[in-house]
């Protein structure tokens, strides 16, 4: 029906690359982004450990990184990428900019989730003489848990979108397959298959996230 030049192995390899990029950058992005998000909440004016210095530096820095489109960030930080992973091409090289891209995004989402926590809970925590760490660990995070699940769902889906541009630095992945074969070689079959894979991936992650969120909310 439709002529194609790629094999099933290529699709599987691309899928693996996408999942690797998403998984690894989500992990490191979270390790960076979650603490930053918490800092944004507790450090803000009126926060648990109010710090004008931390907040006034962190807030604009996150905004600056967030204002760069991923494709620009990807190429702009190539020297940094080379410094960190000793290479500027391939899947590994794509992960560095992905982490730099997603960490501030996660930080903002975590910030929003934590700000949703009823301020009365924090007042209760303070009235019990909880330390700032205890406020975060025993009150803020458990209360925001359901919302945080949705935060990570959104971050994961955003990452899948960003990995499509990883081809620019030879990162591979489903998105790269779609561009190099589907678009540049007019391979309609590849285009349809890759779009379907991305669709199923995003839908799947979103519905798993929603279900987990509902469960955490005990609905």
């Amino acid at each position: 029906m439709m002529d194609t030049t790629i094999t099933a192995d290529q699709i599987i390899k691309a899928l693996q690359e996408t999942l690797t990029m998403v998984g690894v950058s989500l992990l490191f992005g979270s390790l960076l982004g979650v603490p930053l998000g918490i800092l944004l909440v507790v450090g803000r004016p009126g926060g648990v450990i109010e710090s004008k210095l931390v907040y006034s530096i962190l807030n604009p820095v996150i905004n600056i990184v967030r204002s760069l489109p991923f494709i620009i960030l990807l190429v702009a930080i190539i020297p940094f990428t080379r410094f960190v992973v000793q290479t500027s091409i391939g899947t590994t090289a794509a992960i560095v900019p992905l982490v730099i891209y997603i960490a501030p995004y996660i930080a903002r989402l975590v910030e929003n989730s934590l700000l949703e926590v009823n301020p009365g809970i924090l007042e209760a925590a303070e009235s019990m003489g909880a330390t700032p760490f205890q406020v975060i660990w025993h009150f803020l995070l458990p209360e925001a848990f359901a919302s945080l699940i949705l935060t990570f769902t959104t971050a994961t889906i955003t990452l899948i979108g960003a990995t499509a541009m990883a081809g620019t630095v030879g990162g591979g992945g489903i998105g790269d397959l779609a561009i190099t074969y589907g678009y540049q070689r007019f391979d309609t079959f590849v285009m349809i298959v890759t779009v379907l894979i991305l669709l199923v991936l995003v839908q799947g992650i979103q519905s798993i996230g929603n279900r987990m969120g509902r469960k955490a909310r005990r609905e």
Binding site: G120, I121, E123, A124, M128, G129, A130, P142, A146
Partner: peptide
């Protein structure tokens, strides 16, 4: 000092994510 001062609130301020048991246990966990 605050640990010897209990407080109750108009809107209760209970943790929605924890059971009744765990809510009551919090000051002791702290």
């Amino acid at each position: 000092v605050k640990k010897k001062i209990g407080m109750i609130f108009q809107h209760f301020n209970l943790l929605e994510s924890k059971t009744v048991y765990d809510n009551i246990a919090i000051p002791l966990v702290l």
